[in-house]
Design a protein around this nucleic acid. Sequence first.
DNA 1: TGACTGTGGGTTTTT
DNA 2: CCCACAGTCA
Length: 682
Amino acid sequence: MKERIEKVVGNKANQVWAGTFHSTFAKILRVEAEKIGYPSNFTIYDTDDTKNLIKAVIKDMNLSKETYNTNAIYSRISSAKSSLVTPKLYPQVQELMLQDRANRRPYIHEIYSKYTARCKKAGAMDFDDLLFQLYYLLHLNPDNVLDKYRKKFKYVLVDEFQDTNYLQYAILKKLTKYEGSKQNLCVVGDDAQSIYAFRGATVDNILNLSTDYPSLKTFKLEQNYRSTEHIVQAANAIILFNKKQIQKKIWSDKGKGHKIKVIKCAADTEEGKRVADAIIEQKTRLHISNSDIAILYRTNSQSRIFEEYLRRFNINYKVFGGTSFYQRKEIKDLLGYLRLTINHQDEEALKRVINYPKRALGKTTVDKIAALAASTGLTMWDCLTQVEVPARTKDLLKKFKLLIENFAQRSATVDAYELATYVARQSGLINRLKADTTIEGLGRLENVTSLLDGIKEFVENDEVIEGAIESDRGIATYLQNIALHTNMDEEEEGNYVTLMSTHSAKGLEFKSVFVVGLEESLFPSFMSMGTQAGLEEERRLFYVAITRAEELLTLSFATSRYRHGKTNYPDPSRFLAEIPAIHLETTYNNAPQAANIAPRARVSGVKRVRKQAILKIDTANFRASPASEIKEGMKVLHKKFGEGKVVKIDGARDKIATIHFHQIDNSERRLSLKFAKLQILE
DNA sequence: TGACTGTGGGTTTTT
DNA sequence: CCCACAGTCA
């Protein structure tokens, strides 16, 4: 998105804040947190941290973990927050209390309340807090912070508006709807593509818009510029099966195009092979390249089979989403140390690293600390030296505390990369990993190394973000970035087939799309098939999936599938039967006919916007020159942007150089000389 | 304290 | 099938 903006307005794009709701608000909170009683270096709890903390609270309250299922409680708390129900308010909302009582879980409000207190004590916000706390910041309006952001964001644009929830909309209203506001709000959305109801998104936000903004102007975008007619019409036909929808007729003038192909397979493994076969065929007969192809599936675990065959066929691919890099144990361990270093109160981080690598501080000791913390109201960190334990353990605890304090001291003087490297070594993590010489062990060590590389890259990114409140390269900002990292961030230059979940594919497009695993219970998922609303959301998801295709759409299903240790024999998805036969190349019940794709029919289309090429620069011979020697008119070399000419230098103390880089995209970039590593060429 | 073993349960999508 | 967790024993 930022790259597209830059193409239109040039370098000024730097001044635009563009990001997810979560990342944008986290950026604000990083500056304003202290106004609402959080430290500015607050931790962001991810789903694992959140669930672990909920588990701990349930245990502390001596409630049965069968009745109080962690996932159920989490979603209860999350939706309460997303509807602006505070822990205090919760017991007063009859509807919620009645539901809880009906489910025999009357103590949810207490868990919610204790959970919230623990987060606050730990200086931590969960994903929902980034919205919730921001709302309260604007609502309580200390130091007239509301005015500051209203002035700052004179124009607000929201994409994929159908996926916003009540709370996000409430925040938007705070920012754009007030006495004297120009109400410069522009939203783009499609109710047919609403696929996040499970996390609180509501189409009501679209419907309420004209009430909240009476001068609203609506523009219907009914022309599809992406796909050919068979695909568009099939999509139209499918969405008609939903009762709840805003009427519209999408059309395309890109010609009939290819019909939709359906592949029937005897087994999930065969599906992998047949899809790989079809990809080879498209590549050779239609000259489609890897980067024009995507395989979309309902669940991330389906990727494995396709990976296997793509590898076997030597087709380059990249899997997005799933268990992300940042969720791997070894990565979370190192991040845990870093989190604890910048925020000692972070309980989840402390529990994670206190005995890893082994320091003889096991369950008994940790339980004692946790109990003391619960009874005194102190944080676990403070209890490290207070808890009553044998003298030997006392020493070990002291040593651990000193270790972390040493990291913290060091963080004041070195950059994030040096700190992380130091922590990785001094904590014993590296040695522990090195001791494991299995293939997996080597992989884990490699992961840690590439995490360190990532931090290095982050530190060396010296471009000035204008209009940003801070352009911070500290470890706190780094941790925030990765906590809110989306899998779009992983997109990189290269000619690979894309493998991702249908959810992740929203907003993207490919010449050729394979939607796989079209079986009852899988797509639609058995989790949502039961209710009309659930089923309609699955159908919208299918709608999203097939409308990613520009020219070629292939659907596949298997009649037997191995899942959770058992072989299942699913029926084909009902969605297949909802596609009018006229758009299908073959009826999937019959044996496949010979493909009627005209040979050498070259596929055309707009090239997808890709990340700009990264210059290959000989980093081995790169030697940064001292900032003080950089003068206007000099020719300099930058590790990422290549050669450039210093156009001008502004500022007295914090000097900012405007440099014209001709190798990368012929643009001017403003770099802070405080951070910039430039080598003087002449 | 920590390694080891067996049991049992869940099982989707994402910030 | 895979993971988490409880219980056992040195």
